[in-house]
């Protein structure tokens, strides 16, 4: 089970700014270990962010995104106290969903 995400969501004017840190190896599939054996690719493939039942961000990622990725984005329509839900799924079938309250 992956570690929780670290999420900060804050309202600036009419825009909600969300910053997310995810804990993930994001292995490219290009690297080799000390014995010269290729380390299999292992990376987040989809990221979905929902607010009030509506998807505000959907992304498809590949192995070029760094280890422990950081995502920052903005959307309109949030209010203080609302929940923002972030979910990712990786190419091994691992999933993680975390929630934050807009401050």
């Amino acid at each position: 089970m992956a570690d929780p995400m670290k999420i900060r969501a804050s309202l600036v004017g009419d825009t909600t700014e969300v910053k997310v840190l995810m804990s993930h190896e994001m292995e490219t599939g290009q690297r080799k270990d000390a014995q010269g054996v290729v380390i299999p690719a292992w990376f987040i493939q989809t990221v979905t962010v929902t607010h009030g039942g509506k998807t505000v961000l959907a992304a498809q990622w590949g192995p070029a995104v760094s280890k422990n990725p950081f995502v920052s984005f903005k959307f309109k329509g949030g209010a203080k106290g609302d929940k923002v839900t972030i979910a990712w799924a990786d190419n091994r079938g691992d999933k993680r969903t975390d929630e934050a309250t807009i401050a």
Binding site: S66, P69, F70, V71, K74
Partner: peptide, 11 residues
Amino acid sequence: MMHIDRGLGAG
């Protein structure tokens, strides 16, 4: 609007 920080790539 989305911004992905690619640590190693940025390096």
